[in-house]
């Protein structure tokens, strides 16, 4: 388990980084936190001739909340660690879903090294952040020597561990939009051990109206298909009282999820169990998200509920 020899590059700027990538063609790979790439190198599942280390590229490690008029979003630079996002107070205030999901990404030591953008472009079907990006309708900025483009979550991931990135492109930043209106979110998952990839994971975003009734509900899933699956759950739960609904009212959303998703068997769980879990976890997460939406609605209107 030792990688074969490779050339190591350590650019200092984004321009240098993309120039290096352009120079090495198909034989290059970007190294950020290395939490997935290094094991793959050691196991010789990947053997790039060139590694382009972006850890010391200027300006890539920022986590910011930006409001550019089109709506607020959380912007995460390519070298920012999961832990930087997870523990950013401003991010947690405007977009709690990021922390809710990040707490399930492996273990703290891995989150200290691993990068959020790196996880997005690694595109593991079990990766929480791809599902979060998909649920929020976020995007990733890709740079190359020929320019820059912004791709949204659904374009980014084309299959398991597959993305639309060209070999000469560097993902420089991810944008997670802050949802509009009275919203609440929740992330829940079942994994075999704490920090493992989920057997089934679900993030839910619930929006309530001024009467605190469910206006819309959406969910995104990990480990339930080759790419993050996003479902609109609104139909079965529209109009129910977000704060005081009975468990069986949320169970309708769960049944929808079970019916729609087509997970696979693997050595840790059968497809049938995964489908069952999707139903249970969807109902639980939707209920938790709705309760948070009610609480946040109370906060923003100043009313006490």
């Amino acid at each position: 388990m030792k990688p074969s020899a490779f050339a190591y590059h350590r650019p200092g700027t984004v321009d240098e980084a993309v120039a290096t990538l352009a120079g090495v063609g198909d034989d290059g790979k970007v190294l950020a936190g290395g939490q997935s790439l290094v094991p793959m190198l050691n196991m010789r599942l990947a053997a790039p001739a060139h590694l382009v280390d972006v850890n010391r590229v200027d300006g890539l490690d920022e986590v910011r909340v930006v409001d550019d008029g089109a709506g607020a979003s959380v912007r995460v630079g390519a070298a920012a660690r999961h832990t930087d996002v997870e523990h950013d107070a401003e991010v947690a205030a405007v977009l709690p879903l990021l922390r809710q999901a990040l707490e399930h990404v492996a273990h703290p030591t891995i989150r200290n090294r691993g990068t959020t953008v790196g996880s997005l472009v690694h595109a593991d079907p079990a990766a929480e952040l791809n599902a979060v990006l998909a649920l929020l309708g976020g995007s990733v900025t890709l740079r190359s020597t020929t320019g820059s483009r912004v791709v949204n979550a659904s374009e980014l991931v084309t299959g398991p561990m597959q993305t639309c990135l060209r070999p000469d492109e560097l993902a420089t930043e991810a944008a997670f939009p802050v949802p509009q209106g009275h919203t609440g979110t929740a992330w829940t998952e079942v994994s075999r051990r704490a920090g493992d990839y989920a057997v089934c994971g679900v993030g839910v975003l619930v929006t309530v109206d001024d009467e605190l009734r469910v206006r819309s509900a959406r969910a995104a899933y990990v480990s339930m298909g080759p790419v993050p699956e996003v479902l609109d759950l609104t139909e079965p739960v529209a109009g129910i009282a977000a704060g005081g609904a009975r468990p069986d009212e949320w169970a309708a959303a769960g049944r929808l999820a079970t019916a729609r998703l087509e997970p696979d068997d693997d050595i840790h769980a059968t497809a049938a169990y995964r489908g069952h879990l999707a139903g249970v976890l969807t109902a639980r997460a939707a209920r938790a998200a709705a309760e948070r939406a009610v609480a946040r609605a109370g906060d923003t209107t100043g009313a006490s509920t």
Partner: peptide
């Protein structure tokens, strides 16, 4: 015994 097996 895994959760999946207990479920089944």
């Amino acid at each position: 015994m895994s959760p999946s097996e207990l479920h089944h």
